[in-house]
Structure formats: structure tokens, C-alpha cells
Design a protein around this nucleic acid. Sequence first.
DNA 1: TGGCCTTTGAAGGGA
DNA 2: TCCCTTCAAAGGCCA
Length: 432
Amino acid sequence: MPQLSSGGGDDLGANDEMIAFKDEGEQEEKIQENAFTERDLADLKSSLVNESESNSSPAAAAADPEAIRRVQDPQRVYQEKLPDHMEDGIKHQDTGMYKGSAYSGYPFLMLSDPYLPNGSMSPLSNKVPVVQASHGVHPLTPLIPYSNEHFSHGSHSPHLPADINQKQGVHRPSQTSDIPGFYSLPPGGVGQITPSMGWQSQSVYPLPSCGFRQPYSSALSAGATFSRFTHPLMLSSGMHTTGIPHPAIVPHSGKQEMDHYDRSMKPQPEPKREKEAKKPTIKKPLNAFMLYMKEMRAKVIAECTLKESAAINQILGRRWHALSREEQAKYYELARKERQLHMQLYPGWSARDNYGKKKRRAREKQQDSSSAIEEFRLVHPSSSSSSTEQGCYQHALVVGFSERTIGGKRSAFGTYKEKDPVPAQFLPMEVL
DNA sequence: TGGCCTTTGAAGGGA
DNA sequence: TCCCTTCAAAGGCCA
């Protein structure tokens, strides 16, 4: 996958070059079948970015006064219905560093899809209402393609049998009445929220098609400076500064290491237990593939009667490569929006904040990897250092690990057991 | 109970 | 700039 912007930009696609099971000839077939070249995809992504910039202009907004009205109405209703304590919270944000709600990022991102010229809606955004107020869904939902039709684009997905998309009974856990966010909401998240405060709440989020919009706050532009999570509200039980919970904020579950939050939180004289309960974790925004997995996992489970995520992810990984570039671009676009939204909601957040919990495990694996290479060296004494690693690489390929798994983060060749390949019947036709 | 497995992509840091 | 590491989701499995 070619890189689009070297300027640390907001590129749509992945940075890495696609490694797509060349041993199976899949990639070659894809290249032949696809009219899109790598360059085409890069152009497509670039155009998406450019269109984003151009369509977020006031001129584009002026072109659709009706859209503006739709924007303002729900916002007004929202403010009218806002509970007093919520208003206080928001008023509080109007001063100082929290000038403007961090949620103003939503309106910016939820304008009718800015990635098509003339304010027209992209196939994606056309399929994905900005906010499905009538269903009371998460404000992030516009970015969440949980409904099949969001991506069916008028036709079946090429990676699924035709009947799959038509099945109504396919289990779609993320699309139920539960929070349909990209981020898993903890049990205490929405559940502890009064009905008017939940993501699903229509009263608090009277968000018709245009969604929860407010004028984009320049205070949230890239130049805005925020300290890290200095607002206690933002750190409380998945609540944002507005008091509105965000699925990216996950209370301490015991799995998460939250020490890094303590350093940025002002000391609060409150009981220790209560304090611990309020420790949140802000998760990373999901990338394109993660979004795709969320969308397709239930289908694969239903289709293949598999439950083990590792196997499912293997299938999804192959199907991901089998997707057309246009279809992948949809997910890249969603992921890009997701990252934008995340950046606006948590300006000071860094992925590094969540680092640490696997460090020790990684060190152990590295040791295993070193010993595995040494073991290979013993078996192949003539191997030089580089060829030794190459030999391990090839050996691991034979054993059954994918290139990425071997060449990437898990290189403990010698410690892996042979695994069963994904059954052929579970693979998409494109792969077969 | 917690970590592993498995996938791709994004981000951060070191060389 | 390149390379490596870590995390994001998911749920069965295993120690």
C-alpha cells in the first residue's frame, strides 16, 4: 500500500505495503483483476483527502442551506434539553482551555460526506446516516458501518455469497440495542448512565440525519493546545468533558494499566475506591481493518460456524485482501474519520498512553526468538547470520505462519506449534 | 484469571 | 527515513 502523504498527514490508506499471501497467487490475481493499480489507489486516497478539505469550506455549506438548517435544529433541541448539570459542564468548557465542546469535532466530521464534490453524499455516507436518532445510536455510528447495506453499495460484497447479505437472521452483535460503537463500552459505561445521557438517548441526542452538530470549533484545530486529560470529567467512567460518555473511554477493567493517567490527573481528594473506579482507558481508534473485522466478524461466524477469533481473523485477513480497492477505501475512509474524531475528542491522547501492559511479554518473546534462531543455527551450521534469519523465516513459512506474523511482531519461530491452515471452504472464492 | 492466538493498520520511538 | 514495537477487537482455549 503506497504512502500518500509523507507530511504526517491524514492519509487514508495504510502505510505498509500490502503483503497478500503471494504464495497463493492471490495478490497476482488481484492485480490482474483490478483496474486499480497501486498508483490509482494512492490517487484515490489523495483525492479523498483533497475533497475533504475542499468540501468543508463554507462555500460547500452555503450550497446546502437545508443541510445547515438540519444542523442547527438538532443542536438547538439538544441545548434546550440539556440537563442543568450538563449545561454547567459545557459552560465550564466555554472558559479557558476547554473553550468549545470537544464534541464539536463531531459536527465537523459528520457533515455530509466531505469526500465528494459539490456536497453530494458519497455512497458510503449516503448509506450511513450521520446519526440514526430514531434508533438512538452512538454519535460515532455514522462512522460505523454495522449495517450491511452501508457497504453493500447496491450489490453484494464480493467476498460473501449472495445469500449471506440477504440473511436477516445473521447475528450482528454490534448492531443490536447495545452500543454500536467501534469501542467496546464497558458494562458500567452506558449502563450507569441515565437514559437521557446514553449514546442511544434520542432526547439528548436529537440527531437526525445531520447529527449532533455544532459549528466546528477552531479551538480544536491542530494548533489548539490542551493538556493531557486535565479535566476530571473527561476521566470519569467513560464520560467526556461534556458529561457524555464516549465508547473510547473505558473504565479501568483490571486488565488495563492506568498508571499513566495518574500522572496527568490532578489530585482529587476522594476515596481511593471511587477514584480507582473512575480510571478510564481511552482506546486507540480502530484502523480500517479493525473496522472491517467488526463489520464482518458476525458474518464469518454465521457462515463458517467458527467461534475462535484467531481462525476468524485469519479468514478476515484473507478476505480483506480479496476486497476490491474501492471497498477497502471505504474502510480506510471510515478509519480516517475515526482518527479525526478521536483526535478532536482527545487532543492530548497518545497511543503511547496505553503502552506497557505487554512489554514484559514482548521481552520474553524476544528471548524465545533469539533462542529459536540459535537453534536453527545449530541445525544449519553453515548459515550466516542473515541467511540464518532467512532460513528461520522460510522455515516458519513452511510450518504455516504468515509472512507478517513471522516478519513482524511474533518471531518466536521455534516456539510455535504447527497450526491448521484455514479450511479451504472458509476462504473466499477470490482466494481459492 | 490472565495471557495467547490471529489478523492489518496506525503511531511512536530509536537508530 | 527505515525498522521495530505496541495496541486496537474478538472469543475460544489453556495453564
